[in-house]
Computed example of a mutant assay.
Amino acid sequence: MEAARFYAASSIMLFHLTVMSDLPTNILSIYILNYAAMGVPLFFIISAMGMCIGYFGKLETEGSIKDFYMRRFLRIATFFYVMMLLYIIMLPVFGDSGPTLGQFLASATFTMNLVPSYVEGYVWGSWTIGVEMIFYLLFPVLIVLASNLRRALVIFIGATVLATLWRNEFVDVKGPLQSFGNFFIVVQFHYFAAGIVAFHVWRIAVRLCPARVRLIGLILLVISCAATVSLVVFGFWLIFAAGVFTSWKLNHTIVYFLWATVLATFTIGMCLAPTKLLSSSLVCHWGRASFGIYLWHPPVIAGYSKLGIYRAIFALANENAEVSFLLGALLTFATVVPLSLASFRFIEKPGMALLQLKHGRGAGQPERGGSR
């Protein structure tokens, strides 16, 4: 699961490299632009599944629920508040006046997802944190409602249809309401629901003998990777065909359902059959710092663009768009990962240890449930 988080964070970083840097467009970046943003839904699925693994059957008392909320808050808030302060200093450098009082308060209270004008947050990419925090708030109820696979599937299917209906209402809307239509929890919730379904499938699978568990995991990994390639290659035609044979207002339901299913299948496979190829100790180590990778990469990309670093790489690569993009991606990765590992060690881990110290437990005790 830690490795899967790393892949999700890296995918989002590559997506933002295509839209935020001044590297020239190329065949590789076009595919990344169209599909790498699916790293966000993968994050949501991993988050839901990880929390179910950590908390299923354990949120039955007032004390355990309070403990859960405090853990979730500390998991996100400690590092996020540091980034909020950094952005106040950094934004004027990029020609932005900085956050208004309303933007600052919405981000500080994690309520930006509920306010159309503030839904994106002033920390770049923080709209997902607003979504995540609402999911945390709802989780103790959801884990009761989706107590088995059948109930979880019903919630997932219903949430997928609701996401389509919601987005259809914002098709012709512009400005802040367009972002609200795309980022509000209603249009993202089916991915969390898919993560809960993934948990119940995983829970059933792990009861089998170890050899069969690993075989099932490998099969799911192969299926999910093949399905991902198919969705990338044939995604446009799938949407078109769905519109012809079903309804143009509901055709995206099929696509949402398929992507959520494929990403959930990938996550289950990663958990059932961790392989050295996909889940090496180094990748898992980087995955623990995935929250930092997610928050550090936008200012790094913007900074390198402002300094002309990517343009220099393009020149050094003899103006080869594909080569310069790969070199730019490697440079960004080589910068973001060390920053993320440092912030995880010196900011995130001490923040998560605060609750353990309050209860008199050692700071080294692992946290229940998944990180972002």
Rank of each mutant, 00 (worst) to 15 (best):
S10C: 11
L14P: 09
L17E: 05
T18L: 07
Y35A: 14
Y35C: 10
A37C: 07
I45N: 04
G54P: 01
M70C: 08
A77Y: 08
V82I: 10
M83Y: 08
M83R: 01
L86G: 12
L86F: 15
M90R: 05
L91R: 15
P92E: 05
F94G: 00
F104W: 11
S107E: 02
P116K: 00
E120G: 07
G125I: 09
S126T: 12
G130Y: 01
G130S: 06
I134S: 03
P140T: 07
P140R: 00
V141F: 14
V141D: 00
A146R: 03
N148L: 12
R151M: 11
A152R: 04
A152W: 06
F156E: 06
I157A: 12
G158F: 07
A159L: 04
V161K: 10
T164D: 11
L165Y: 08
N168I: 08
N168Y: 11
L177T: 00
F180W: 10
F180S: 03
F180G: 05
I185P: 05
H190A: 01
Y191I: 09
F192Y: 14
A193H: 11
A193K: 05
A193L: 10
I196Y: 07
I196F: 15
I196K: 03
C209A: 07
P210K: 14
V213E: 10
V213Q: 09
V222H: 06
A226Q: 05
V229Q: 01
V233A: 15
G235V: 11
A241E: 12
A242Y: 09
A242S: 12
W248T: 14
L250E: 09
H252G: 09
T253S: 11
T253A: 12
T267I: 06
G269V: 02
C271A: 10
L282P: 00
H285Y: 14
G287Y: 04
F291V: 02
Y294K: 02
L295E: 03
L295Y: 00
P298H: 14
Y304Q: 05
G308R: 00
I309F: 13
Y310H: 03
V323K: 06
L327A: 12
T332A: 09
V337W: 07
L341T: 07
E348Q: 03
A353M: 13
K358G: 10
